[in-house]
């Protein structure tokens, strides 16, 4: 294959990988602190994108034409709102079910996701149709042989990577990060050492959901189109990525995100069947991987106490 084309596919795959990793890190953070899966996460991504869309529509309507200003406003508002939504979901649905079977949390958040998804479909103006997402980033390209790098893609890639690095630094270097890691390690000991469980959990859900909002905006800017049901597939992909990487492990989630994107890209480009099968291939590969490494690639060793 032509090296330029190869680079093109590789970059597209990396871009997808960044979006998936942003979503997967949320899943793995929630699982870390509470051992639960918050399946509404994909729909929070979607809600973040729609919030941003509404902000842009509102500002454009009010006559604000500056692209950077609109972009900034929509990032700030979407991220803040989704952080609040995430914390609320944790407070109202996840924390009350502590002590219930873990599957109930999965169920209740699946249903919460449905509520968000249907809410947007029904109550956002013409919510059931795909919506064009404004192109707010500079539109030029850099051409190197047959490899075309769009400026906007490059910027999005940098933003995504920066966010992932930011989360990593938050976890590794801040008091909040220490609290999150302590709760993830052992909630009882953490509580005994004076780390407030509820506050830490809410903060974790807020951070994860803020990342989801960012993923939603990046996704919208990259594809220039969003729809109410984008969260379903993105959620499933993010969950897959987190699980394949090993739930609770942030590196695993990032690795899983890029791996899933690689699988899709290979499925679309390198395999003999039609590119429409790329998701079939990627999910089938996930199922096979789960059979081979049941606890994920970077599994944390844990034995049940008998």
């Amino acid at each position: 294959m032509d090296p330029g084309l190869l680079a093109q596919h590789a970059f597209n795959g990396l871009m997808l990988g960044v979006i998936y990793a942003l979503v997967a890190v949320g899943f793995t953070l929630f699982f870390g602190v509470l051992d639960v899966i918050k399946f509404s996460h994909g729909d929070v991504v979607m809600l973040g994108a729609f919030t941003a869309l509404a902000v842009s529509a509102g500002l454009t309507g009010a006559g604000v034409m500056s692209h950077p200003l609109v972009l900034l406003a929509m990032l700030v508002i979407a991220i803040t709102l989704m952080a609040v939504v995430g914390a609320l979901l944790a407070r109202l649905l996840v924390l009350p079910l502590r002590g219930a079977p873990a599957i109930n949390v999965l169920l209740i958040t699946l249903m919460a996701g449905t509520v968000i998804r249907e809410g947007v479909r029904l109550f956002y103006p013409q919510g059931s149709n795909p919506k064009p997402f404004p192109r707010l980033l500079p539109g030029g390209t850099i051409e190197i042989g047959s490899f075309t790098l769009r400026h906007d893609s490059a910027i999005l890639f940098v933003i995504g990577v920066a966010a992932i690095v930011g989360v990593y630094l938050t976890l590794a270097r801040t008091r909040l990060g220490l609290a999150i890691r302590a709760v993830a390690q052992d909630p009882e000991t953490a509580a005994a050492m004076g780390i407030p469980l509820t506050a830490t959990v809410l903060a974790t859900f807020a951070i994860g959901s803020a990342l989801a909002a960012l993923a939603g905006v990046v996704n919208g800017l990259y594809y220039s189109e969003i729809s109410f049901n984008l969260g379903l597939l993105l959620g499933a992909i993010g969950f897959s990525a987190a699980v394949v990487g090993g739930l609770g492990n942030v590196y695993g989630a990032i690795l899983g995100g890029f791996l899933f994107a690689a699988l899709q890209t290979i499925g679309a480009v390198a395999l003999p069947f039609a590119s429409a099968y790329k998701d079939v291939f990627a999910f089938a590969a996930v199922i096979v991987l789960m059979a081979l490494r049941p606890a994920g690639l970077l599994a944390e060793r844990s034995a049940e106490r008998i």
């Binding site: 699982f31 899966i37 873990a102 599957i103 999965l106 597939l233 499933a236 969950f239 897959s240 699980v243 739930l247 998701d279 079939v280 999910f283 089938a284 996930v286 199922i287 789960m290 049941p294 606890a295 994920g296």
Partner: peptide, 13 residues
Amino acid sequence: HYAALITIAFGIL
């Protein structure tokens, strides 16, 4: 959760 994912992935697939 891991088992849940497998069935979800299968359904979408």
